[in-house]
Nucleic acid binder design. Structure first.
Lengths: 342, 342
DNA sequence: ACACGATTTGCAATCGATTGCAACAAAGCG
DNA sequence: CGCTTTGTTGCAATCGATTGCAAATCGTGT
């Protein structure tokens, strides 16, 4: 077994200079050859490339990054401000992350993921930016860090944020028109006969606050009562909070607008446990249109966000910002997906 | 607005030398001061630390990594071999990723995520390892890359893999005893009256193959028929494949063992659409015990994997490997969670 | 007053790849 | 044949932080 251990017991080619010595050229030439630089003679280049392959040589990325002042790595920060536990597992964020990974990989970037708990680390944004490890930064969700993000954006161009767009904000954001989404969800409920709407969500996150604001717009305009109920997204609290919030007597005309499909699905489960029929006794509308939303009983009526398109837009904007352009934000329209829950 | 733009229009302290000049010391001293090295005078150190804070100075991590030959970054590779699209969104993998992020952050590591499509990139493992960007590597799922992982493990100690453990394998793995899990799932179905079991999953991934093997063990021993049906996990194919696989006439005694809760939940939805009652006409058992499993109708009977414990174990092993120890694999026992679907 | 030890600081090499500039050779031109 | 042009290659500086070793400072003991 240990004698087998040396199929390639060569001195190990670790650096450009090692390879250069073997090839009988200088390190500079090897560097240029591997970079496909046309300055080197074609024969030389092919010989060097072949040698590199044979010896399994890979240039050290740290050294390269240092010299070029470019890492080909994009940072992804997930602030867990208003909800410090485990928001990373929220299906929506994860789906977005998956698509971002797709888009970035396609463009030749690696991604460096960092969970951030702003309460414990005031300095998270500047630290990440200043580390020199990343060429650009994507922030997934503003959480309650809107102001800090604004501050950072003043001095750091290559940053794009997923979240809500506010009038006159300075950082570049991609997201859904949350207020409009809240409005159409609420209008749907009211059109279905709702007279009293409970909003389930955590309004200290700006995205959700905007959905709530939209709901209030519609409710007030149409003369319907609306009551906010705070429910967090962290998986360890979600069920209990939803249960507590729904432990009330519902009357005809009551309805629920959940800030998130995750919350809506938990509500569905809770109501079933309580023996309350959806949508007959209580109507529910969610937000996101996760794949799961179509599979619940009854299938969930929800407001769709275009996650994949959003992810690709974020990457596109970021890359333009990296090259110096000061891009505008993108606000995507939400679409109501009418199914059977509300 | 643009006049406001310079609240701190100082020359910008970007390097150790910049700060050293301001502090009136040498770069070496600054480096030692910021590292908390006791060689420097306490007064000097405090002065330098304060100065660094005032100027928002952050040492360049690339330079540091290069010099120290240590990056404090752990790579996480997600091979999408047997299922190239979007496996990253599989809830199980994502949950694992979340916990890994927790554990690594706690230990002071950053994480670099890389989706890998081995078909398109033969060299993915050595490339990641050889890049010099990471101090260690976690691989989430062996997919169909078992042999390649074995090869790499011979020459690279700091690597831990989530997946299945095979007799005599050389790479360090953390995972559930999939074969045993498959067995107990199947025994449960048979105890409930099943005479013919359909296995839903993709046996080209070793983890799932082991679950199937366990199912076959139990079925053969107890004289029950078992039929494998190939269903992939990628979100774009999953529904159609499950639908196609379940588009058959079920007879009394038929049951389904889904390799994954995700598949089980999709099956539940499909059977409901077909008007087939669970568990009265067909019993179903899943695998993973995702949070969602408790919320389906009927609640899903499944085999639980301890994801969080597994994630922390992986990180623990990895860190010991980074410091040179050659750790053993960890195989965790699966637990049947009996609910109502099977 | 001098030597010696303990602290503290500076100097300069180092990590490995990249790249501007100079050097050199070969080829083209008058 | 001498001179310019084109094509290749080497040399050495550079990115920014770290660290072994030497040097400087201060204090103390004799």
């Amino acid at each position: 077994m240990s004698e087998q251990e040396t199929p390639k017991a060569r001195p190990a080619v670790r650096t450009l200079s090692d390879l250069a010595r073997i090839a009988g050229v200088s390190a500079g030439t090897v560097s240029r050859a591997l970079a496909g630089n046309s300055l080197v003679n074609t024969d030389t280049r092919e010989r060097i490339v072949a040698l590199a392959r044979d010896h399994g040589f890979r240039p050290n990325k740290m050294a390269s990054s240092l010299r070029r002042q470019k890492t080909d790595v994009i940072g992804i920060a997930i602030p867990l401000g208003h909800d410090s536990r485990q928001q990373i597992s929220d299906t929506f964020f994860i789906t977005l992350l998956g698509h971002l990974a797709d888009a970035l990989t396609e463009r030749g970037y690696d991604l460096m993921l960092r969970r951030v708990i702003p309460e414990r680390d005031e300095d998270w944004l500047d630290r990440f930016i200043g580390s020199g490890m990343i060429d650009g930064l994507l922030v997934i969700g503003q959480s309650d860090q809107f102001d800090r993000i604004e501050d950072a954006a003043d001095g750091y161009l290559p940053m794009v944020v997923w979240g809500n767009h506010a009038e006159g904000q300075r950082h570049c954001v991609v997201g859904t028109d949350n207020r409009l989404g809240g409005r159409i969800a609420t209008e749907r409920l009211i059109a279905g006969g709702a007279r009293h709407i409970y909003f389930l969500g955590d309004t200290s996150a700006v995205e959700f606050a905007a959905r709530y604001a939209g709901a209030v717009d519609a409710a007030e305009r149409l003369g319907v009562t609306i009551t906010p109920l705070t429910s967090h997204l962290s998986s360890d609290r979600l069920e209990a909070e939803v249960a507590a919030n729904l432990d009330r007597s519902f009357e005809p005309g009551d309805a629920i607008f959940a800030a998130t499909d995750t919350l809506a699905i938990a509500s569905l489960a809770r109501l079933k446990a309580l023996g309350i029929a959806v949508p007959d006794q209580v109507r529910i509308v969610g937000f996101d249109d996760l794949p799961l939303a179509a599979q619940t009983t009854p299938p969930l009526t929800t407001v769709r966000q275009e996650i994949r398109a959003g992810a690709f837009a974020m990457v596109d904007l970021l890359i333009r910002r990296i090259s110096g352009e000061d891009t505008e934000s993108i606000v995507m329209p939400p679409h109501l997906v009418g199914r059977h829950s509300g």
